[in-house]
Protein backbone atom coordinates (compact mmCIF):
# COMPACT_ATOMS: atom_id res chain seq x y z
CA UNK A 1 0.00 0.00 0.00
CA UNK A 2 1.24 3.49 -0.78
CA UNK A 3 2.11 6.10 1.82
CA UNK A 4 -1.24 7.88 1.75
CA UNK A 5 -3.37 4.80 2.20
CA UNK A 6 -5.14 3.72 5.37
CA UNK A 7 -5.41 0.10 6.40
CA UNK A 8 -8.97 -1.18 6.61
CA UNK A 9 -8.92 -0.91 10.39
CA UNK A 10 -7.67 2.67 10.34
CA UNK A 11 -10.31 3.53 7.78
CA UNK A 12 -13.05 1.95 9.87
CA UNK A 13 -11.70 3.79 12.89
CA UNK A 14 -11.81 7.14 11.07
CA UNK A 15 -15.36 6.51 9.86
CA UNK A 16 -16.55 5.57 13.35
CA UNK A 17 -14.93 8.63 14.89
CA UNK A 18 -16.70 10.75 12.28
CA UNK A 19 -20.04 9.23 13.28
CA UNK A 20 -19.44 9.72 17.00
CA UNK A 21 -18.43 13.37 16.56
CA UNK A 22 -21.41 13.98 14.31
CA UNK A 23 -23.76 12.82 17.09
CA UNK A 24 -22.01 14.92 19.73
CA UNK A 25 -22.34 17.95 17.47
CA UNK A 26 -25.93 17.48 16.32
CA UNK A 27 -27.79 16.17 19.38
CA UNK A 28 -28.59 17.87 22.63
CA UNK A 29 -28.45 14.89 24.94
CA UNK A 30 -26.73 11.79 23.58
CA UNK A 31 -25.76 8.69 25.53
CA UNK A 32 -23.58 5.70 24.79
CA UNK A 33 -25.11 2.33 25.61
CA UNK A 34 -22.52 0.32 27.43
CA UNK A 35 -22.97 -3.43 27.57
CA UNK A 36 -19.43 -4.04 28.90
CA UNK A 37 -18.72 -6.48 26.05
CA UNK A 38 -15.85 -6.26 23.59
CA UNK A 39 -17.85 -4.21 21.09
CA UNK A 40 -18.67 -1.71 23.83
CA UNK A 41 -15.00 -1.59 24.75
CA UNK A 42 -14.10 -0.75 21.16
CA UNK A 43 -16.88 1.84 20.93
CA UNK A 44 -15.72 3.55 24.13
CA UNK A 45 -12.14 3.49 22.88
CA UNK A 46 -13.26 5.22 19.66
CA UNK A 47 -15.16 7.82 21.67
CA UNK A 48 -12.01 8.53 23.68
CA UNK A 49 -10.12 9.01 20.41
CA UNK A 50 -12.81 11.23 18.93
CA UNK A 51 -12.61 13.84 21.67
CA UNK A 52 -9.01 13.54 22.84
CA UNK A 53 -7.61 15.38 24.78
CA UNK A 54 -11.08 15.97 26.24
CA UNK A 55 -13.36 13.26 27.65
CA UNK A 56 -16.38 12.23 25.56
CA UNK A 57 -19.13 14.84 26.07
CA UNK A 58 -21.78 12.22 26.93
CA UNK A 59 -22.31 9.57 29.63
CA UNK A 60 -22.31 5.81 29.27
CA UNK A 61 -25.46 3.91 30.19
CA UNK A 62 -25.49 0.34 31.38
CA UNK A 63 -28.81 -1.48 31.53
CA UNK A 64 -28.21 -3.78 34.48
CA UNK A 65 -30.54 -6.75 34.67
CA UNK A 66 -28.89 -7.77 37.96
CA UNK A 67 -27.99 -11.08 36.31
CA UNK A 68 -24.86 -9.89 34.59
CA UNK A 69 -21.65 -11.78 35.29
CA UNK A 70 -19.92 -10.45 38.39
CA UNK A 71 -16.72 -9.88 36.45
CA UNK A 72 -18.60 -7.61 34.08
CA UNK A 73 -19.77 -5.37 36.91
CA UNK A 74 -16.26 -5.35 38.34
CA UNK A 75 -14.88 -4.31 34.95
CA UNK A 76 -17.49 -1.55 34.65
CA UNK A 77 -16.58 -0.14 38.02
CA UNK A 78 -12.81 -0.52 37.91
CA UNK A 79 -12.07 0.15 34.29
CA UNK A 80 -14.77 2.38 32.81
CA UNK A 81 -15.58 4.37 35.90
CA UNK A 82 -12.29 4.45 37.78
CA UNK A 83 -9.48 4.09 35.22
CA UNK A 84 -11.09 5.98 32.36
CA UNK A 85 -12.94 8.34 34.66
CA UNK A 86 -16.08 8.19 32.56
CA UNK A 87 -19.56 9.10 33.68
CA UNK A 88 -21.34 5.72 33.85
CA UNK A 89 -25.08 5.63 34.48
CA UNK A 90 -26.61 2.33 35.61
CA UNK A 91 -30.30 1.63 35.17
CA UNK A 92 -32.33 -1.33 36.38
CA UNK A 93 -36.05 -1.96 35.93
CA UNK A 94 -36.74 -1.85 39.67
CA UNK A 95 -40.49 -2.37 39.36
CA UNK A 96 -39.91 -5.65 37.59
CA UNK A 97 -37.41 -6.73 40.22
CA UNK A 98 -39.99 -5.98 42.91
CA UNK A 99 -42.53 -8.01 40.97
CA UNK A 100 -40.09 -10.92 41.15
CA UNK A 101 -39.08 -11.27 37.51
CA UNK A 102 -36.46 -13.93 36.96
CA UNK A 103 -34.97 -15.65 33.94
CA UNK A 104 -35.65 -18.99 35.60
CA UNK A 105 -39.36 -18.46 36.15
CA UNK A 106 -40.46 -16.32 33.19
CA UNK A 107 -38.41 -17.70 30.33
CA UNK A 108 -35.72 -16.01 28.32
CA UNK A 109 -37.98 -14.10 25.95
CA UNK A 110 -40.21 -12.45 28.52
CA UNK A 111 -37.28 -11.78 30.83
CA UNK A 112 -35.29 -10.10 28.07
CA UNK A 113 -38.31 -8.05 27.02
CA UNK A 114 -38.80 -6.70 30.51
CA UNK A 115 -35.28 -6.39 31.85
CA UNK A 116 -33.56 -5.21 28.67
CA UNK A 117 -35.99 -3.79 26.13
CA UNK A 118 -38.43 -2.30 28.61
CA UNK A 119 -35.65 -1.13 30.96
CA UNK A 120 -33.86 0.57 28.08
CA UNK A 121 -37.00 2.46 27.09
CA UNK A 122 -37.56 3.51 30.70
CA UNK A 123 -34.01 4.77 31.00
CA UNK A 124 -34.13 6.68 27.71
CA UNK A 125 -37.40 8.28 28.81
CA UNK A 126 -36.12 9.08 32.26
CA UNK A 127 -33.03 10.92 31.07
CA UNK A 128 -34.69 12.25 27.88
CA UNK A 129 -31.81 11.08 25.69
CA UNK A 130 -32.31 12.05 22.06
CA UNK A 131 -29.55 9.82 20.65
CA UNK A 132 -28.19 6.52 21.90
CA UNK A 133 -25.07 4.81 20.58
CA UNK A 134 -25.15 1.04 20.33
CA UNK A 135 -22.34 -1.33 19.46
CA UNK A 136 -24.34 -3.50 17.05
CA UNK A 137 -22.67 -4.56 13.81
CA UNK A 138 -24.35 -5.32 10.51
CA UNK A 139 -22.55 -8.64 10.19
CA UNK A 140 -24.08 -9.99 13.40
CA UNK A 141 -27.42 -11.08 12.11
CA UNK A 142 -29.44 -10.97 8.91
CA UNK A 143 -31.94 -8.28 9.89
CA UNK A 144 -29.08 -5.99 10.86
CA UNK A 145 -27.55 -6.01 7.37
CA UNK A 146 -30.05 -3.34 6.35
CA UNK A 147 -29.89 -1.24 9.47
CA UNK A 148 -28.86 2.37 9.01
CA UNK A 149 -25.99 3.95 10.92
CA UNK A 150 -28.49 6.55 12.15
CA UNK A 151 -31.62 4.54 12.89
CA UNK A 152 -34.75 6.55 13.49
CA UNK A 153 -37.12 5.61 16.36
CA UNK A 154 -40.52 7.13 16.95
CA UNK A 155 -41.61 8.44 20.34
CA UNK A 156 -42.43 4.86 21.37
CA UNK A 157 -38.90 3.75 20.43
CA UNK A 158 -40.24 1.68 17.55
CA UNK A 159 -38.23 0.87 14.45
CA UNK A 160 -40.02 0.68 11.14
CA UNK A 161 -38.03 -1.42 8.68
CA UNK A 162 -40.20 -0.21 5.78
CA UNK A 163 -39.70 3.44 6.49
CA UNK A 164 -36.01 4.06 6.97
CA UNK A 165 -34.33 7.24 5.85
CA UNK A 166 -31.99 6.88 2.90
CA UNK A 167 -28.41 7.26 4.06
CA UNK A 168 -25.84 8.52 1.56
CA UNK A 169 -22.12 9.23 1.77
CA UNK A 170 -21.27 10.23 5.32
CA UNK A 171 -24.09 12.75 5.46
CA UNK A 172 -26.22 11.62 8.38
CA UNK A 173 -29.66 13.11 8.90
CA UNK A 174 -29.97 13.95 12.59
CA UNK A 175 -33.27 15.84 12.45
CA UNK A 176 -35.95 14.65 14.86
CA UNK A 177 -39.03 16.01 16.58
CA UNK A 178 -39.37 16.19 20.33
CA UNK A 179 -39.73 12.76 21.91
CA UNK A 180 -38.27 10.95 18.92
CA UNK A 181 -34.76 9.59 18.97
CA UNK A 182 -31.99 8.11 16.90
CA UNK A 183 -30.07 4.95 17.62
CA UNK A 184 -26.57 5.28 16.27
CA UNK A 185 -24.33 2.37 15.34
CA UNK A 186 -20.75 3.52 14.86
CA UNK A 187 -19.53 -0.07 14.42
CA UNK A 188 -22.00 -0.88 11.63
CA UNK A 189 -19.31 -1.73 9.12
CA UNK A 190 -17.04 -3.67 11.46
CA UNK A 191 -17.03 -7.45 11.47
CA UNK A 192 -16.35 -9.66 14.44
CA UNK A 193 -12.84 -10.22 13.09
CA UNK A 194 -12.26 -6.47 12.70
CA UNK A 195 -13.29 -5.92 16.31
CA UNK A 196 -10.94 -8.57 17.62
CA UNK A 197 -8.06 -7.40 15.45
CA UNK A 198 -8.60 -3.86 16.64
CA UNK A 199 -8.74 -4.92 20.30
CA UNK A 200 -5.45 -6.69 19.67
CA UNK A 201 -3.73 -3.84 17.79
CA UNK A 202 -4.90 -1.11 20.12
CA UNK A 203 -4.45 -3.21 23.28
CA UNK A 204 -7.95 -2.42 24.48
CA UNK A 205 -8.83 -3.95 27.86
CA UNK A 206 -11.72 -6.44 27.83
CA UNK A 207 -13.57 -8.42 30.50
CA UNK A 208 -11.48 -11.49 31.47
CA UNK A 209 -14.47 -13.76 30.78
CA UNK A 210 -13.43 -13.72 27.12
CA UNK A 211 -10.28 -15.64 28.05
CA UNK A 212 -10.34 -19.33 28.92
CA UNK A 213 -10.14 -20.27 32.60
CA UNK A 214 -11.45 -22.96 34.89
CA UNK A 215 -15.02 -22.02 35.73
CA UNK A 216 -17.93 -23.85 37.39
CA UNK A 217 -20.50 -24.80 34.76
CA UNK A 218 -23.53 -27.01 34.29
CA UNK A 219 -24.44 -28.61 30.99
CA UNK A 220 -28.04 -27.94 29.96
CA UNK A 221 -29.07 -29.52 26.68
CA UNK A 222 -25.61 -28.91 25.27
CA UNK A 223 -25.36 -25.31 26.52
CA UNK A 224 -22.72 -24.71 29.19
CA UNK A 225 -24.11 -22.30 31.79
CA UNK A 226 -21.73 -20.83 34.33
CA UNK A 227 -22.76 -20.95 37.97
CA UNK A 228 -21.78 -17.37 38.67
CA UNK A 229 -23.68 -17.15 41.96
CA UNK A 230 -26.07 -19.08 44.17
CA UNK A 231 -29.18 -17.78 42.38
CA UNK A 232 -28.88 -20.37 39.60
CA UNK A 233 -31.31 -23.13 40.59
CA UNK A 234 -29.72 -26.53 40.12
CA UNK A 235 -31.83 -29.36 38.77
CA UNK A 236 -32.06 -32.53 40.87
CA UNK A 237 -28.78 -34.38 40.58
CA UNK A 238 -27.10 -31.52 38.71
CA UNK A 239 -23.64 -30.71 39.97
CA UNK A 240 -21.46 -27.85 38.79
CA UNK A 241 -18.16 -29.05 37.38
CA UNK A 242 -14.98 -27.09 36.80
CA UNK A 243 -14.24 -26.86 33.10
CA UNK A 244 -11.87 -24.72 31.07
CA UNK A 245 -14.23 -22.44 29.22
CA UNK A 246 -14.57 -18.93 27.87
CA UNK A 247 -17.34 -16.71 26.52
CA UNK A 248 -17.59 -15.45 22.98
CA UNK A 249 -20.37 -13.05 23.89
CA UNK A 250 -21.37 -11.60 27.26
CA UNK A 251 -24.83 -11.02 28.70
CA UNK A 252 -26.89 -12.37 31.57
CA UNK A 253 -25.04 -15.36 32.92
CA UNK A 254 -28.03 -17.72 33.02
CA UNK A 255 -28.71 -16.97 29.33
CA UNK A 256 -25.18 -17.05 27.97
CA UNK A 257 -23.50 -20.22 26.90
CA UNK A 258 -19.79 -20.82 27.45
CA UNK A 259 -17.58 -22.67 25.01
CA UNK A 260 -14.84 -25.08 25.95
CA UNK A 261 -11.59 -23.49 25.04
CA UNK A 262 -7.94 -23.14 25.94
CA UNK A 263 -7.54 -19.69 24.43
CA UNK A 264 -5.86 -17.49 27.03
CA UNK A 265 -4.44 -14.78 24.76
CA UNK A 266 -6.00 -12.54 22.14
CA UNK A 267 -4.23 -14.21 19.21
CA UNK A 268 -5.50 -17.54 20.48
CA UNK A 269 -9.04 -16.18 20.73
CA UNK A 270 -8.80 -14.91 17.17
CA UNK A 271 -7.32 -18.19 16.03
CA UNK A 272 -10.21 -20.04 17.62
CA UNK A 273 -12.74 -17.69 16.10
CA UNK A 274 -11.28 -18.13 12.62
CA UNK A 275 -11.31 -21.90 12.79
CA UNK A 276 -14.68 -22.26 14.48
CA UNK A 277 -17.75 -23.13 12.48
CA UNK A 278 -20.51 -21.24 14.26
CA UNK A 279 -21.31 -17.54 14.51
CA UNK A 280 -21.09 -15.78 17.88
CA UNK A 281 -24.77 -15.07 18.38
CA UNK A 282 -25.37 -18.79 18.63
CA UNK A 283 -24.31 -18.60 22.27
CA UNK A 284 -27.13 -16.22 23.05
CA UNK A 285 -30.18 -18.16 24.09
CA UNK A 286 -32.68 -15.56 22.92
CA UNK A 287 -31.88 -15.88 19.23
CA UNK A 288 -33.03 -19.41 18.85
CA UNK A 289 -36.66 -18.59 19.63
CA UNK A 290 -37.80 -18.15 16.04
CA UNK A 291 -36.55 -17.12 12.62
CA UNK A 292 -36.40 -13.36 12.29
CA UNK A 293 -36.72 -13.01 16.06
CA UNK A 294 -34.18 -10.19 16.20
CA UNK A 295 -36.28 -8.25 13.77
CA UNK A 296 -39.37 -8.64 15.95
CA UNK A 297 -37.37 -7.46 18.95
CA UNK A 298 -36.06 -4.45 17.11
CA UNK A 299 -39.54 -3.38 16.10
CA UNK A 300 -40.40 -3.43 19.80
CA UNK A 301 -37.37 -1.32 20.68
CA UNK A 302 -34.62 -3.81 21.44
CA UNK A 303 -31.25 -2.64 20.27
Amino acid sequence: MSAYTLTHLKQLEAESIHIIREVAAEFENPVMLYSIGKDSSVMVHLALKAFYPDKPPFPLLHIDTTYKFREMIEFRENYARKNLGLDVLVYTNQEAIKAGISPFVHGSKKYTDIMKTEALKQALNKYKFDAAFGGARRDEEKSRAKERVFSFRDQFHRWDPKNQRPELWNLYNARINKGESIRVFPLSNWTELDVWQYVHLEKIPIVPLYYAAKRPVVNREGVLIMVDDERLPLNPGEKPEMRTVRFRTLGCYPLTGAVESTATTLPQIIQEMLTTKTSERKDRVIDTDQAGSMEEKKKEGYF
Partner: peptide, 25 residues
Amino acid sequence: MSHQSELIATDIDEYLAQHERKELL
Protein backbone atom coordinates in the same frame (compact mmCIF):
# COMPACT_ATOMS: atom_id res chain seq x y z
CA MET B 1 -16.80 -17.68 10.02
CA SER B 2 -13.99 -19.76 8.77
CA HIS B 3 -11.04 -18.46 6.83
CA GLN B 4 -8.76 -20.48 4.68
CA SER B 5 -5.19 -19.92 5.57
CA GLU B 6 -2.68 -22.37 6.87
CA LEU B 7 -1.17 -19.59 8.91
CA ILE B 8 -4.15 -19.51 11.24
CA ALA B 9 -3.24 -22.88 12.60
CA THR B 10 0.54 -22.67 12.29
CA ASP B 11 1.41 -19.07 13.15
CA ILE B 12 -1.48 -16.92 14.29
CA ASP B 13 0.76 -13.95 15.10
CA GLU B 14 2.11 -13.86 11.57
CA TYR B 15 -1.42 -14.24 10.22
CA LEU B 16 -2.56 -11.27 12.29
CA ALA B 17 0.39 -9.19 11.20
CA GLN B 18 -0.65 -9.82 7.59
CA HIS B 19 -4.35 -9.40 8.06
CA GLU B 20 -4.35 -6.28 10.16
CA ARG B 21 -3.08 -4.30 7.21
CA LYS B 22 -5.57 -4.84 4.42
CA GLU B 23 -7.07 -2.35 2.06
CA LEU B 24 -10.82 -1.72 2.14
CA LEU B 25 -12.84 -1.94 -1.06
